[in-house]
């Protein structure tokens, strides 16, 4: 059943996402061509202005692609579960758990796809300069890791894990906020936005407080403990996000099982 639900969740956004991906592809080619001409005819002001305009359009298309994907994913979740379409969704012979996970996994797939497309586009546009981008990250790594006593592989893995978990946490927080908004008879959208802000800020404040405590403690052990502070901070952040995510999943599934408030 989860497979069927997932199939329809992905299909429902497929057409718009294909258009978005096509727009990014066209913009990438346009930007690449514009950069080529700007490089070849760098003394021509008209080509320079055209190239700059194209770069602005390209940047706007990339930003729009991300926003459209985010909007579609969360609108789909709301309409499908708490809008009128909920009458169909929750009378399907499917468990609420499956319905929730199909929405979550489809969001993950769509948002990952759009992020991958945007990053790929940036690398295509950068071309040979992509090496400079990689070099830039290497420089950051050198600056960050050489001054502190820390295993660079471990820290890199933790950073990547932290980004992935934060991304997963973001999706579950938005879903959870939408579910919280359903507890209100009116102004459900405003309630959802407020719920999202409260959850996000609460987690940020909690993480800041924990980091401050760890920093104070590690400071007592001198500079050599700074590397450990960074590692522990990352682990704490990942742990807090995972715990938060699990709580949000449980809340959303509970809401879908027991607390539907269909209009």
């Amino acid at each position: 059943m989860l497979g069927k639900l997932l199939k329809y969740d992905l299909k429902s956004n497929a057409v718009i996402m294909c258009i978005v991906f096509a727009a990014v592809a066209v913009a990438t080619v346009g930007e690449k061509v514009a950069l080529y001409f700007a490089h070849e005819y760098d003394d021509n002001p008209y080509i320079g202005i055209s190239s700059m305009s194209m770069t602005m359009i390209y940047a706007m298309i990339l930003i729009a692609a991300v926003f459209i994907a985010v909007f579609l994913v969360f609108r789909r979740f709301y309409n499908n579960c708490f809008g009128k379409e909920g009458y169909l969704t929750f009378t399907l012979p499917a468990k609420a758990t499956h319905i929730y996970w199909s929405k979550y996994i489809s969001a993950l797939i769509i948002l990952t796809a759009v992020a991958a497309i945007v990053i790929a586009s940036l690398f295509v546009v950068a071309g040979n300069d992509a090496r400079d981008i990689l070099g830039f990250f290497k420089d950051i790594k050198t600056v960050m890791f050489d001054g502190i006593d820390v295993n660079p592989v471990l820290l890199t893995v933790l950073y990547i894990l932290s980004v992935v978990v934060s991304f997963l946490f973001f999706i579950s927080t938005v879903y959870c906020a939408i579910c919280i908004g359903q507890n209100f008879k009116v102004h459900t959208l405003i309630a959802s936005i407020v719920a999202y802000l409260i959850i996000s800020w609460s987690v940020s404040i909690l993480l800041s407080m924990i980091s401050a405590v760890i920093l104070v403690v590690s400071d007592r052990f001198g500079d050599t403990a700074f590397g450990k502070y960074i590692i522990i901070s990352e682990i704490v952040q990942i742990t807090v996000h995972i715990i938060g995510m699990i709580a949000e999943h449980f809340y959303c599934i509970h809401k879908m099982k027991k607390g539907l408030n269909l209009k």
Binding site: E85, G86, Y87, T91, P93, A94
Partner: peptide, 16 residues
């Protein structure tokens, strides 16, 4: 899910 497979429901709203 078992009972939902046996019940055909027509709500009083357009829900598709």
């Amino acid at each position: 899910p078992e009972t939902k497979a046996q019940v055909a429901y027509l709500p009083d709203v357009t829900y598709l």
